[in-house]
Simulated scan of single mutants.
Amino acid sequence: MTTNAPGAASPAVLRYTAFSADPAGGNPAGIVLDAAGLDDAAMLGIAAEVGYSESAFLTPAPDSASASASGQAGRAYDVRYFSPQAEVPFCGHATVAAAVALAEHGAGAGDFVFSTRAGTVPVTVTDADGAPRATLTSVEPHVDEVTAADLTEALASLDWPADDLDPALPPRIAYAGARHLILAAATRERLADLSYDFERLAALMRRLDLTTVQLVWREKDLTFHVRDPFPVGGVVEDPATGAAAAAFGAYARELGLVPAQSELTLHQGADMGRPGVLTVNLRDGDAKVRVSGAAVRIEG
């Protein structure tokens, strides 16, 4: 990639929130619909200036074989995601926000193909009663064990006693485009009380190549409340995390915590004053995970 030509105007940055139909809820993302001509430093600079947990940078893709094969020629984009401090391989909330932004800025509802650093991510935008909603399909997920030493360090960084974990939801590292350490709280009170050692947790996350730590409390069979510390991105907490939701869906299915064909509801952001809802769909016989949510433009 090359940087902007000397004297070129800065690209327009749209601001959308994902996983809420209320601009005051969900997770805000910066969106650049045509990032052609921006180099890594320029994208990182824009993301830092915007200040959200992530910003998405889209470049219209040529009619690649993958786009043509899926019937999406002309609706395919290369997408990169930057936090204020670093690039991340995949970001779910910025994907949902970017797809809705595309639909509202001329493309219309329908199917898109996003080529990300994590792989190809199909996204579908629907418009029911004037409320746009996007559904992303994850890359192939997997779930890994976490070592006892790394779990001990994570709990120490969070200041969580081991007895505060829910033994029915064992710790794991799950991936569906990015890696997330999943830790389940035994009570809603434990989840609500989040005060952690920012630098210590960030160091562990960098060593384990984690994007967030997903903290979970199970309200009932298919309903969960989640929080996502994100110190490696320079952010204390992410308000609604689509990539972690996809990873959690894969985790819940692999460990037999939910039926193989399920729709999970994840509530996130309420503890930050930005409530949002993420819908996770699991299909029997299909390892990939679908994450859906509303998105709306933030004015200003």
Rank of each mutant, 00 (worst) to 15 (best):
residue 187 T to P: 02
residue 188 R to A: 15
residue 188 R to T: 10
residue 190 R to T: 15
residue 190 R to G: 03
residue 190 R to P: 02
residue 192 A to I: 01
residue 194 L to C: 02
residue 195 S to Y: 05
residue 195 S to C: 10
residue 195 S to K: 14
residue 196 Y to F: 15
residue 196 Y to R: 02
residue 196 Y to P: 01
residue 197 D to I: 00
residue 199 E to S: 15
residue 200 R to H: 13
residue 201 L to I: 08
residue 202 A to P: 01
residue 203 A to S: 14
residue 203 A to M: 08
residue 203 A to V: 05
residue 206 R to V: 07
residue 206 R to I: 05
residue 206 R to N: 12
residue 208 L to K: 14
residue 210 L to V: 04
residue 212 T to I: 08
residue 212 T to S: 11
residue 212 T to C: 15
residue 212 T to E: 14
residue 215 L to N: 07
residue 216 V to C: 10
residue 219 E to Q: 15
residue 219 E to R: 15
residue 221 D to E: 14
residue 224 F to W: 13
residue 225 H to Q: 14
residue 228 D to H: 12
residue 231 P to C: 13
residue 235 V to H: 00
residue 236 V to H: 13
residue 237 E to H: 09
residue 238 D to A: 02
residue 239 P to T: 11
residue 239 P to G: 05
residue 240 A to Q: 00
residue 240 A to T: 01
residue 242 G to H: 04
residue 244 A to T: 09
residue 247 A to D: 05
residue 247 A to M: 08
residue 247 A to K: 00
residue 251 Y to W: 13
residue 252 A to N: 04
residue 254 E to Q: 15
residue 254 E to H: 11
residue 257 L to T: 09
residue 260 A to R: 15
residue 261 Q to G: 06
residue 261 Q to H: 13
residue 262 S to Q: 10
residue 263 E to S: 09
residue 263 E to G: 07
residue 264 L to I: 14
residue 264 L to G: 02
residue 264 L to H: 05
